[in-house]
């Protein structure tokens, strides 16, 4: 009998099985010891050190995007949230407020359809729709490709609306300056604790649909406290896109971030950006 696999009789003078391996298909080397009974030893493994980050490829593309944004003096914001938090409505209103004050452009991410891009295009902002198909997040390479079709708004703001998903987009750097997480008051104030990764990855949290606060059991202070339990540095703003309450603070935040990056003061002519970069 073969001592390695237990099949068939083994011949005294060597290796061959009289019966072969027959129905089971898993050939192996045979021993070279007396009567062929020595146990074949697998050669010692070669262990090689790798130490490569699983996101290294994404991060290389993200770094390239970030350089591109810096060269053009663009503030890039990655809007992330669950589906239905009101990201697109918020964006449409934001673009309307910035119109004539700052150059803007939008990358729209959804699994399917160009419905959101159509809403953005109606504001007059340049937009590219990315459909991820079955994908649950945008990655930096997808954004890099989108930028080939989208003129960067020199001295202005690029909004990247991620796929509605509070989990996966947290892992993927797109080259943005900040992730902005949108949490609507219809979602529950414990959400930051249930989906902590996104609240850790974000720099700003917008608590939206505040006009519904009288009708839902959502405590905005508790939501913010929960978010800061995960990320003590998180800035938080409460606003209503529909009624306009708190919206100015969000636009001010964008202006402040643009100023911090050396992008254009609001309303400055685009030519100033060219001089500044020259």
């Amino acid at each position: 009998m073969c001592v390695t696999c237990g099949c068939g009789p083994i011949l005294a003078d060597g290796h061959a099985h009289e019966m072969g391996h027959g129905a089971h298909d898993h050939g192996h080397a045979h021993g070279t010891g007396p009567r062929g009974l020595g146990i074949w030893k697998e050669p010692a493994p070669r262990v090689v050190s790798v130490e490569q980050d699983l996101l290294a490829k994404n991060d290389r593309h993200a770094a390239a995007n970030r350089q591109r944004f810096a060269r053009a003096g663009v503030l890039a914001l990655n809007l992330v949230s669950s589906p239905g938090s009101g990201k697109t409505t918020l964006l449409v209103e934001t673009l309307t407020r910035l119109r004539g004050r700052r150059p803007v452009a939008v990358v729209e991410g959804d699994q399917q359809t160009s419905l959101d891009a159509d809403r953005i295009a109606a504001t007059g902002a340049p937009v590219v729709q990315l459909n991820t198909g079955k994908g649950c997040h945008l990655d930096a390479l997808q954004v890099e490709r989108a930028l080939d079709e989208l003129p960067l708004p020199s001295g202005g703001v690029l909004f990247i609306e991620n796929v509605g998903n509070l989990v996966c987009p947290a892992s993927f750097d797109l080259g943005e300056a900040h992730k902005v997480v949108v949490l609507s008051v219809t979602e529950g104030d414990d959400k930051p604790l249930k989906y902590p990764d996104m609240f850790l990855a974000a720099d700003l949290c917008l608590v939206t649909k505040s006009d519904l606060l009288p009708y839902v059991p959502f405590d905005a202070d508790r939501a913010i406290a929960n978010a800061r339990r995960i990320n003590p540095r998180l800035e938080c703003l409460v606003l209503s896109t529909l009624k306009g309450d708190g919206f100015d603070a969000w636009v001010d935040w964008i202006d402040r971030e643009c100023a911090a990056r050396g992008t254009l003061p609001a309303g400055a002519p685009a030519a100033a950006a060219l001089e500044r970069r020259a």
């Binding site: 493994p45 050190s49 980050d53």
Partner: peptide, 25 residues
């Protein structure tokens, strides 16, 4: 403030011997 423990890396591999394939035949 999180300072570590967010890594996701391929640490190391154990490679087969030269000529060794993964085909079970």
């Amino acid at each position: 403030e999180v300072t570590g423990g967010t890594e996701m890396r391929v640490h190391e591999l154990e490679l087969g011997a030269p000529g060794e394939t993964n085909a079970c035949a």
